[in-house]
Every structure is written in structure tokens, then in C-alpha cells.
Simulated assay, not measured.
Amino acid sequence: MNRSNKNNVMSARERIEAFCEWFDLPIPDLMYEPDGDIRINETFFKWCDEEQPCIDWIATGDAKAMATAYRQKYQCDGSALSDFKKTVRKLDPIERDAIHMAVSLHLEGTAPLDQALEVAKNAIDEIRAKAA
């Protein structure tokens, strides 16, 4: 079974808008087909050269290329991710909840990640001080 586009529910226009939102980029003035698909032309290629999106995902909605690139990066050098996992495993459930809340606030757009994690760190420090 080919599952590449199983969860593709966004149009190319929506994927470009999401990409621009994620990376705080202006939405490009591109041409679209009536169904929302991107019109592949020189303007599109110029935007891709400048902003470096995953073209497979932008044009077709196929996230496999992004998942593959992520996986290859961390298979080759997963030390930072591995260190993060080791650190998180040392946290007790309440401390993990503080980290989870920080990431959730960031994903909801409520707080920048660095600020949310700083609040979580302060909460963890306070929990540990009370326990000591």
C-alpha cells in the first residue's frame, strides 16, 4: 500500500502558507491553479532556491522526503538527540509535565520556545529546591 500522500489534506497554497508561517517568511506571490495546486514555473523555482523548502512536500504534499532527511541526519549524528533523550529520562513525571507544557505552549503559538522552556526550567528548579 502506498501511504505517501495518505494524510495530504492541504493544498499547495496551504503548505506554502504554513511553511512561511513556521519560518517567519513573507508569503510569496506565486501562481496557483483553481484547485489550489501550485503552478510550477520560474517564479516558483526562484522562491524555492531562496527559501529552501522541501519541494516534494510543497508541490505534492508528500512528506516522505522531509522524514527521510530528518532520519538520515539523526542516524548519522544523533548525539544531540540522544543526549536530550537521556536528560528527559532522568526527569520525574512532574518535571516532564513542565517540559511538555512548555512545548505545548510554543506549538499553540502562546509563547516563544526559549521563553516557554525558561519557565519550565524555573519550575523544575523550584520543584527540586522544595524536594531538597
Results as ranks from 00 to 15, higher is better:
T68K: 08
G61C: 09
K6G: 13
N5E: 01
K86E: 06
P93F: 14
F19S: 09
D125A: 10
G78E: 15
E17M: 03
L30Y: 04
M31A: 13
A67I: 10
I99C: 10
V9R: 01
F23G: 01
E21V: 11
A111P: 00
M101D: 11
E126M: 05
V119R: 01
T60A: 07
V88P: 05
E50F: 02
R13E: 15
T110R: 10
D77I: 02
K6N: 13
Y74A: 04
M101P: 01
P28A: 02
A18K: 12
A65C: 09
L105R: 10
W47R: 08
A67W: 09
D97R: 11
R3F: 00
D92N: 15
A111Y: 00
T87M: 14
F45R: 04
F19R: 12
K86L: 13
C48I: 06
R13K: 15
K86F: 12
K85S: 11
N122P: 00
D49G: 09
I127G: 05
I58T: 05
K73W: 12
N2S: 09
I127W: 08
R15Q: 00
E51I: 12
T110V: 07
S79D: 11
K121C: 07
E17I: 05
D125K: 12
A67Q: 06
L81G: 09
K6V: 15
L81T: 12
L25M: 10
T43G: 11
E126L: 05
K85A: 13
G78I: 14
S11I: 03
E50S: 03
S104E: 07
R71E: 07
K64G: 05
I94H: 10
A132P: 01
Y32L: 06
T68V: 06
A98G: 00
R96T: 02
A12V: 02
P112G: 00
N7H: 10
S79M: 11
F23K: 08
I124R: 03
K90D: 11
A120R: 00
M1D: 12
F45Y: 12
I127S: 02
P26S: 05
I38E: 08
S82W: 02
D92P: 06
N122V: 07
A18W: 13
E14M: 13
W22E: 13
T68H: 07
I124V: 02
K46C: 12
R89E: 07
I16K: 11
T87I: 15
N41S: 04
G109V: 00
V88N: 03
V88E: 03
R3L: 08
I58V: 04
I94P: 02
M1V: 05
E95H: 02
F45S: 08
A65M: 11
K6S: 14
